[in-house]
């Protein structure tokens, strides 16, 4: 879904797109890819990928399989697989990730913690269970 320069390759394929004129409050949960270009307050969770645009302002904990962050985030981010942080990103919170890439210029104010292989396996099993229950 993501290209090397932290831009969305298939913008239209995302299940949910929140534009820059939209303010979201509450617990936002999804199964598919989510793109946030606006404001979000609460929490954000998906089984797939999250893309945070450079105009976005987030005050929420984020949990996703993959995450790509170019905007401002006040909260913890957990990317079970891959976390990409762009040069316009400002993050005030702790980061948990399977793999990470950080561009020059990004601001991170928090702890960085790489998820262990065992943790990743457990999370994968959990996700598979959730996906199966959703399909049923």
């Amino acid at each position: 879904m993501f290209s090397k320069d932290n831009k969305l390759e298939k913008f239209k394929d995302a299940e949910t797109i929140i534009g820059s004129s939209i303010k979201v409050k509450g617990n936002f949960q999804g199964q598919g890819d989510i793109v946030i270009e606006g404001f979000l307050e609460g929490s954000l969770k998906t089984l797939a990928s999250v893309f945070i645009g450079n105009q976005a302002k987030i005050a929420a904990n984020i949990e996703a399989k993959d995450a790509i962050v170019n905007g401002e985030v006040h909260g913890n981010i957990k990317a079970k697989n891959y976390l990409a942080i762009g040069n316009t990103a400002k993050i005030f919170g702790d980061l948990q990730y399977g793999e990470i890439s950080i561009e020059k210029g990004a601001v991170i104010n928090g702890q960085l913690l790489m998820l262990s292989e065992d943790h990743k396996k457990n999370e994968k099993l959990k996700d598979e269970k959730i996906e199966n229950s959703v399909e049923k």
């Binding site: 929140i18 004129s21 939209i22 303010k23 979201v24 409050k25 509450g26 617990n27 936002f28 949960q29």
Partner: peptide, 12 residues
């Protein structure tokens, strides 16, 4: 919507 709200500020 389910557990969250959306506010639209601009015209459209």
């Amino acid at each position: 919507l389910n557990g969250y709200s959306l506010e639209v500020s601009d015209r459209g």
